[in-house]
Each structure stands twice: as C-alpha cells, then as structure tokens.
Design a binder for these strands. Structure first.
Length: 197
DNA sequence: CCCGTGATTCTCT
DNA sequence: GAGAATCACGGGC
C-alpha cells in the first residue's frame, strides 16, 4: 500500500531509492524536489487550481505530468493530504531495468545521462502527458518504495526564481546520476518603465 | 555560453 | 479576447 498522505517535506526523501516503472523500463530515483502547494510561490499550485495542475489537488499517489519549454515533459508524485496540492518533482534516477529501450529513446546519451534530469527521466521512461493523473498503484506507471538511502543531501531547488532560498531538493549523497545544479535565469528588464527611481 | 520551442497564465482591453 | 512574459529544460558550441 502506497501511502504518501503525510507532509510533503517528509514524503520527498522517502521517494529516494524508490523505483518508478513504465512497461519494460524502470528507474531508481536518486534526486527529487518538494513543492508545497499553498505556501510555496515556486509551486504550480500556488495561485490555485487550473486545468494544468488539477491533478495536484487530487489524492496523493498520483502522477502529475506537465509540458514545458515547448518540448519537455516532467513528472511529479502528488503527496500530502488531498486538496493541499503538494507534489514532488522527480529530477533524476538510474535506469535499473529495460536499459536497451531507454537507450533507444535517449539516443546519443551516455548510460549515466539516460534519466539525469527531469525531462530526460520522463523521456527514458516513455512518460507523456497521457500519463497525467495515473494512479501509481494501478499503473500503467507504478511506484515502489525502496530502502532508505545511507546518506541524503539537501540544497536549493534548481532553476526557480521564486523561493530559491528553500532547500527542498533532496538527493542521495555521492550518486553519479544526480542532475547538475543550475540557478534560475536572471529576470530580464521589465517592459514597463520603473518609476521608483 | 546561447537558444529552440510552444503551452500556460497574466494583464489589459 | 489579444498580446506578452514566463517557464520545475536540454542540447549544442
């Protein structure tokens, strides 16, 4: 029984070493990031429910998938009590089964890079927008929790402007498959004139 | 370093 | 409704 109904900051590290499977390909998760719905300016759910983020407001244990930058799909596991809209972004992992299929999907990538990065992870697993809302106990995408890692590191989330000070990124210390840290791009000059000075 | 790429959302009519 | 900014990224140089 997959119970992820506790506070998201407690659930996120529990997902390390968990195995996400879709068909023949399975990935052991090595890096995740927490997003805390109502209290978190970095969360897709911060401004309330929209068509995109509806799944976040539903029960825990479902997959929330979204499309970004015109070409990438990323996925999260919904955590916390229903209605709180918290989720954990799956940032990276190690392919532990179906590596031949994963290599085809990620042609040109080294084995280490197959699922190193949130969009790469979805690509390697063949996860798309059609999988938004999937119940991870029923499939077709499934999640199986693993044994807690020996050592967990934490740090700032990657690529966010909002709430960059929160250390809500968790990874298994020393893992080669953890994605490289990249701070958010600086805000471009506003189109509106600044009248304050 | 730079930039493709297009859905989503915000803001103003 | 239209126009604009944004974006939880990745690949190429």
């Amino acid at each position: 029984m997959l119970d992820l109904s506790g506070p998201v900051l407690e659930q996120a590290p529990r997902l390390l070493n968990a195995v996400l499977r879709h068909g023949d390909v399975a990935v052991r998760l090595t890096e995740v990031e927490a997003y805390d719905g109502a209290n978190d300016p970095g969360s897709h759910a911060y401004r309330g429910m929209t068509r995109r983020n509806t799944v976040m407001f539903g029960p825990p244990g479902r997959l929330y998938c979204y499309f970004t930058y015109g070409m990438h799909v990323c996925c999260n596991v919904v955590c916390g009590p229903e209605g709180i809209a918290s989720a954990v972004l799956l940032r990276a992992g190690e392919v532990v089964d179906g590596i031949e299929v994963a290599r085809e999907r990620r042609a040109g990538a080294s084995d280490r890079d197959l699922a190193r990065g949130p969009a790469r992870l979805c690509r390697a697993l063949g996860i798309g927008l059609a999988d938004d809302g999937v119940d991870l106990e029923r499939g077709p995408v499934t999640l199986t929790l693993g044994s807690p890692p020996d050592d967990v590191s934490t740090g700032p989330r990657v690529g966010l402007r909002a709430a960059a000070e929160r250390s809500w990124r968790f990874w298994i210390t020393g893992e080669q498959t953890v994605s490289s840290y990249r701070p958010a791009a600086p805000l471009r000059a506003s189109r509106r004139p600044d009248l304050s000075s």
